[in-house]
Design a protein around this nucleic acid. Structure first.
Lengths: 215, 215
DNA sequence: AATATTCTATATCGATCGGTCCATAAATCC
DNA sequence: GGATTTATGGACCGATCGATATAGAATATT
């Protein structure tokens, strides 16, 4: 990329990965510049600031990288080629698997990445809060689409369904970080979705006999 | 209490309350000694350490105080004079109200009090993790008691019911901190409990027609 | 080769971190 | 009153925080 000048001696993409692992496991504030530089191959402060600008700027870049990779388990929420129920189910199951996987820190970076913050780092908290709000909007949109489609009845129960799904979704971070197994989390998702099904419009005539998913 | 020596000039109980508010809102690590001392009336470091020993010791005391006050919304879990369903319902509704109240920081201190931690403060994380485990055990015990009582059917759905309830319960902290209204959280609890009811043993002959709670 | 550009190494910045020390003040005990 | 005990104010500890300044090394352009 840089066409002139001395080339960078460390791999910037790998550095972002290393930083993501640290921020994911410990959160924004407890992760120190010393740790970050060490994880990038003991680079110097000057190299760090030349490459990333600041700790906060690096964190924002890490969040974007997370959303573009691991965070894609939530992509079904905005995929209108899926039925609303499939979108919700794939998102919940994908998140359950991803958050409890052992190949990387557990839980969701967007939920736990800045949950303990000093007042001076409120912008960092706000960044993640906005992302969580996006999730809520996506889940609500799925439920509303299902009601508009006639898949779900409009009722008091379906009114609060988005809140239930969102609360459960955000609770998975705590459970995964506390060691809950992937299969158990997935089984909980399965059972939670009966809350959807008991509010579904019955289709005695329709094709899908028992709602079996490909995933 | 202290029978001899110069009496303390600040109210230790009020100091614990002030510390709880800070730890609750910001978490363990981001809360500095400077903030703590300021919230206690600008006491000196010597007074602080004489009274509390260390930041970690104060935090442990704060957690105990929290459990003995706000945390008592979970007491129904271990009250065997209540039916299991009432115990769960009172705990969830009480927590929903408490965590979203505006008179104090939102969310649950046990969930968010040390969610971002440096490796050196792992004992603090472990303290809260153990408390969360106690909650899981309590919820699971309620479900198992209901099955033993014949209130719930034993099934795959009731096997995972504790996990669902726990995940939702821990998710409330995120929602409350993100500004979810008390009534909305409570409505979500109401709807979530239908997951209990659809697994309840039907009693066509029994007295309770529609499961109405006093709370 | 000269120059411009970019990165690296080292030393260091002021601020803050949790925590300690000491002299003094204010109470009780004898 | 004198001794003892406890608390207070303030100076200060070494360590670490995120971030910078400066000088030199390595590349590209011309």
């Amino acid at each position: 990329m840089a066409r002139t000048g001395r080339p960078r001696e460390f791999d910037r993409d790998r550095a972002i990965d290393a930083a993501m692992a640290l921020f994911w496991a410990q959160g924004y504030e407890p992760t120190s510049l010393t740790q970050l530089k060490a994880s990038m191959g003991n680079i110097s402060p000057a190299s760090f600031y030349a490459a990333f600008g600041s700790k906060e700027a690096l964190f924002r870049e890490v969040v974007q990288h997370y959303l573009a990779t691991y965070g894609q388990v939530m992509a079904p929420l905005w995929d209108e080629s899926l039925s609303p129920r499939e979108a919700i189910e794939r998102t919940l199951r994908g998140s359950a698997r991803m958050q409890s996987a052992r190949a990387h820190p557990t839980g969701c970076l967007v939920v736990s990445g800045a949950s303990n913050c000093s007042p001076e780092n409120e912008p960092v908290q706000a960044l993640l809060a906005a992302e969580r709000q996006r999730t809520r909007t996506g889940i609500r949109a799925c439920v509303e689409r299902a009601i508009a489609n006639g898949e779900l009845k409009a009722s008091a129960a379906t009114d609060v369904l988005p809140d239930i799904l969102t609360t459960f979704f955000h609770g998975m971070t705590c459970e995964a970080r506390d060691g809950m197994a992937s299969d158990d989390l997935d089984a909980a998702v399965t059972s939670l979705l009966t809350l959807w099904d008991i509010n579904a419009v019955k289709r005695g005539t329709a094709k899908r006999p028992k709602k079996k998913l490909t995933d």
